[in-house]
Simulated scan of single mutants.
Amino acid sequence: MTIAEVLALLAIGGIAGFINVMSAGGSMLTLPLLMFLGLPPQVANGTNRVAITLQSATAVSGFRRMGHGNLRVSLHLAVPAIIGSLLGAWIATWVPDAVFELVLVVAMVGASVFMLLPQPTLDTRPLTTDRLGPFILLAMFLIGLYGGFIQVGVGVLFLVVLYRILKIDLPQVNVLKVAITLLYIVPALLIFAINDQVRWGMGMTLAIGNVAGAFLAVRVNLSSRGAQWVKWLTLVMVAAILMRLVFY
C-alpha cells in the first residue's frame, strides 16, 4: 500500500466507524473505497468485515463499560441473524462481479433514500424477550442474510425493525445494533477468509480508522441526542461514490 492509500483507509475508516455506530451507512463509504483501491468486489466485501468486526467490538465494549447493553435480548436477536449471515456470506463468495456491483449500487441508492425520509417520533419502551415473536426473529434472519452478503445499509434495516416496529429509543437501537452485528459478522468473516477473500493488511488499516470512529461515537451516542449532521455527511459522500461507480 502507498502512503496515500493508507491515509485514505484511515480517514474514511474513521468517518465510517462513527457513522456505523451513530446511524447507518458506513459501509457505503468503505466498500467502494476498497474496490477503488484495486480489490475485486468479493475480496473488498470480505476485507471490509475486518474493520466492521473490530469497530463493533470497540463499540460493544464501550457501551458495556458505561452500563449499557442487554445481553439476553442481544443473543435472542443474534441467533437467527448468525444463521442468515452464514448463508449470505456463502452466496457472496461466488456471485459474479457484475451482479455484486449492481446490488451494491441498488443498496446504496435504497439506503440513501431511506435516510432522506423524516424519522418519526415514537413513544418508545424497553425491549424484553417476551416481545420477540416469530416475525421479529424472521426479520433478524433476513437482516443477517443481507448483512452476510453485503453489509451496506444494514443499519437502516435495524432502524426499521428496532425503532419503527419494536419502538426502542434510538440510543438503545445503536447499542443493540452493534452487539448483534458483532455476533453475526464474525462467522461471515470466517466464510470470506476460508475462501481467500480477505486482505488482512488493508482490512486492519481500515479497522484502525473504524475503531477510532466507533470509540468517539459511543461517547456521542450516550451523551446527547446524536449528531444529525452525520446523515448529511454520509449522503454527500455517497452521492460522489455513486457517480464514480456508475459513470467511471
Rank of each mutant, 00 (worst) to 15 (best):
L87G: 00
G88E: 01
G88S: 07
A89H: 08
A89V: 07
W90R: 05
W90S: 03
W90V: 01
W90E: 01
I91L: 13
I91W: 13
I91M: 14
T93H: 04
T93C: 06
W94F: 11
W94Q: 12
P96W: 03
P96K: 03
D97G: 01
A98D: 12
V99L: 13
F100M: 12
F100T: 03
F100Y: 12
E101L: 14
V103C: 14
V103R: 00
V103D: 02
L104N: 09
L104S: 03
V106N: 13
V106K: 09
V106R: 09
A107K: 06
A107V: 12
A107F: 10
M108Q: 03
V109N: 00
V109A: 02
G110V: 13
V113N: 02
F114P: 02
F114H: 13
F114V: 10
M115H: 02
L116Q: 05
L116C: 10
L116T: 04
P118L: 01
P118N: 05
P118F: 01
P118A: 00
P118Q: 03
Q119K: 15
P120E: 04
P120A: 01
T121N: 11
T121M: 05
L122R: 15
L122G: 01
D123K: 14
T124L: 12
T124Y: 09
P126L: 08
L127Y: 11
T128C: 10
T128Y: 15
T129S: 06
D130F: 14
D130Q: 14
D130K: 13
D130E: 11
D130A: 12
R131V: 00
R131S: 10
L132H: 04
P134G: 11
P134D: 12
I136P: 10
I136E: 05
L137Y: 07
L137G: 03
L137H: 07
L138F: 15
A139W: 06
M140E: 08
F141E: 03
F141N: 05
F141H: 09
L142M: 15
L142K: 01
I143D: 04
I143F: 08
G144E: 02
L145W: 06
L145A: 08
L145V: 11
L145P: 11
L145Q: 07
Y146P: 10
Y146D: 02
Y146C: 08
G147Y: 06
G147V: 10
G147F: 06
G148I: 06
F149C: 00
I150C: 05
Q151T: 11
Q151D: 09
Q151C: 10
V152L: 13
G153T: 09
V154G: 02
V154Q: 07
V154L: 07
V154N: 04
G155E: 06
G155P: 07
G155Y: 03
L157V: 15
L157S: 07
L157N: 09
L157R: 06
F158S: 13
F158I: 15
L159P: 06
L159T: 15
V160I: 15
V160A: 15
V160W: 15
V161E: 02
V161Q: 02
L162I: 14
L162P: 02
Y163G: 09
R164V: 13
R164H: 12
R164S: 14
I165F: 15
K167N: 12
I168R: 09
I168M: 13
I168G: 06
I168N: 02
I168Q: 10
I168P: 08
I168K: 06
D169Y: 08
P171M: 04
P171C: 05
P171E: 06
Q172D: 12
Q172A: 08
V173Y: 13
N174I: 03
N174Q: 09
N174T: 06
N174E: 05
